[in-house]
Simulated scan of single mutants.
Amino acid sequence: MAFFRQYIAPLLVVLVFIVSLVAVSARIFLPNDMAAPAPIEEVNPTSDKAQSPAADSVADLPPALSALLKGLPDELGLSEQL
């Protein structure tokens, strides 16, 4: 057990560090458009009118769960909930 703790475990830690360092450093050699972080917003946002009517009902969930998934309607404010 001491052999594993003194030789094998530190070797595994160093190997994981080297592999992760190589993976992160590989971004230097990528083309400029691929080296940037991924965009957060959608490139082609879809409008609400383009959604099908079935997209409004999320698997016929109860109103409490539907509010958690879709959010509260605009006319309901948090002050009314308290």
Rank of each mutant, 00 (worst) to 15 (best):
F3K: 07
L72N: 14
I8H: 01
V24M: 04
D56F: 11
F17K: 03
L69S: 11
F3S: 05
L61G: 09
L76D: 10
L65M: 15
L72S: 13
N32F: 03
R5A: 07
A23G: 05
E42N: 08
K70A: 13
L78T: 14
F17R: 02
A54W: 11
N44S: 09
F4E: 07
V58F: 12
D56I: 10
D33N: 11
M1S: 08
S20N: 09
R5L: 09
A35W: 00
V24H: 05
I28P: 01
M1R: 07
A67R: 15
L61D: 14
L82Y: 11
S79N: 14
V43L: 04
K49Y: 04
E80D: 15
V16M: 07
V24Q: 01
Y7S: 04
L69I: 15
L11H: 04
L30A: 04
P37V: 02
D48Q: 11
I40R: 04
Y7L: 03
E75A: 12
P31F: 01
L11F: 04
L21C: 08
Y7M: 03
A64V: 15
A50R: 03
V14A: 11
P53I: 00
E41L: 09
V58P: 10
A59N: 13
L15W: 05
A59R: 14
L72W: 14
I28L: 05
K49F: 09
P73N: 02
I28F: 08
E75H: 13
E80A: 13
L65T: 13
N44T: 08
P53C: 01
G71Y: 07
D74A: 15
P73R: 04
P63K: 08
V58D: 14
L65N: 14
K70V: 14
A54F: 12
P45V: 00
V19D: 02
F17V: 10
A59P: 01
L78H: 12
M34S: 03
A54G: 14
E75W: 14
S52Y: 06
F3H: 06
F17S: 10
L30W: 04
E42V: 02
P37W: 02
V58W: 13
P39S: 03
V14E: 04
S57M: 08
S20T: 06
A23I: 05
V13P: 00
P73I: 07
